[in-house]
Simulated assay, not measured.
Amino acid sequence: MIDAQATRMFAEAAEAADVVERQAAANAVTVAELAASLRRSPPRGIATCARGSSDHAATYAKYLFETRAQVLTTSIAPSIASVYGAAPVGEGMLALGISQSGKSPDIVATLQAARDAGARTLALVNVAGSPLAALADTVLPLHAGAETSVAATKSYIAALAAIAQLTAAWTGDEALARALAALPDALRAAWTADWTPLVDTLAGAQGMYVIGRGVGFGIAQEAALKFKETCGLHAEAFSAAEVKHGPMALVGKGFPLLVLRQADETAEGVDALVREVVARGGTVLLAGDPIDGAIHLPVAAAHPAVQPILAIQSFYRAANALAVCRGFDPDRPPHLAKVTETV
């Protein structure tokens, strides 16, 4: 059996705290200049373009930008530009492309179309010399360093941190800025959090839901992808508000849910859902404050926009261990490559 602590996924995810610390320092001037520009000339809307883990970071961005900056944010399907040749983004808007490699042809085509239509362009990339970066008016490098495991981990956390850093600077959110200053140490603590109950509970599972809401929904999407990608476990992500619209029909005795909770306005509704599922006999793994009948996974108290970042860091270590437990190599998922060049 593979040693779970010898995988590239384990090693790269463990670097996240150092990546975030390095990124914050390296991007500070660029973020401050971009934030000042956005205050002087607020965009009439923000359009994101990404796939996979990067698109899950875009979901996080949507909730932060809409709740903190109060700017409508939507996701553009990359095929709109690359296949259909359309450009739904125009002058006065901000187009945000997120890509670890910065060379996925459809993401590049979308940012090019947005730029040609007069939109301001921003790229979050790990490869600063990439084609996507070359198209952007502003580039925020992720500074994650080489990431060779197929499963993105530290680059995803770096994207979340960059989005939060921009939001704090743009809106003058001092509480979020303080939380981000403490994020590297908090990530180091999150890496050591005991999430072994997740491994024990899901070792033989065949299907499950991952539940989040608000700023935590993009993290739920990411966790569901990693379950499929690294563990061979079919997982679907749902908002706590949407799971009752049909998917709840599958929830019964023994059906597992991973619920990601942050201490904000969504907490009461998430807690109510957890209690309902426990009453139905479902198995709930709860990342957040404990609830009777649910299996507790610890997440440190923190700013609600930061708590999901801490949760995914703890999750990555547990997912890596679960993959090995289920007989998979998390670094080499079947039928997948590190860079997916979709046209």
Rank of each mutant, 00 (worst) to 15 (best):
A128V: 06
T30L: 06
S75R: 07
V29P: 00
A179Q: 03
L132P: 05
A237H: 08
A169H: 04
G97H: 03
M9C: 09
A26F: 00
D200M: 04
R332N: 07
P131T: 04
H335C: 11
A189L: 15
S155R: 12
D289T: 13
N320I: 08
T230C: 15
F227R: 08
A28C: 00
Q23W: 02
Y84F: 15
E15D: 15
R178E: 15
T192E: 14
I46P: 04
A77K: 01
A114K: 05
A182D: 13
A235Y: 12
Q262D: 12
R332M: 13
A17Q: 06
K338A: 14
T110K: 01
A237I: 06
S79L: 11
L124W: 00
I80S: 14
V277M: 13
D264F: 10
A319F: 15
R317S: 09
A109R: 09
E91P: 10
K253S: 12
V108G: 01
L322W: 01
V215Q: 09
G216M: 02
L202M: 02
D18R: 11
E33R: 14
R261E: 14
A318Q: 01
M9E: 09
T74C: 07
G90R: 02
R44A: 13
A182Q: 10
Q5D: 12
G232M: 07
G218Y: 00
A305T: 06
T283A: 13
K253D: 14
L202R: 03
A151V: 12
A36D: 15
D329H: 07
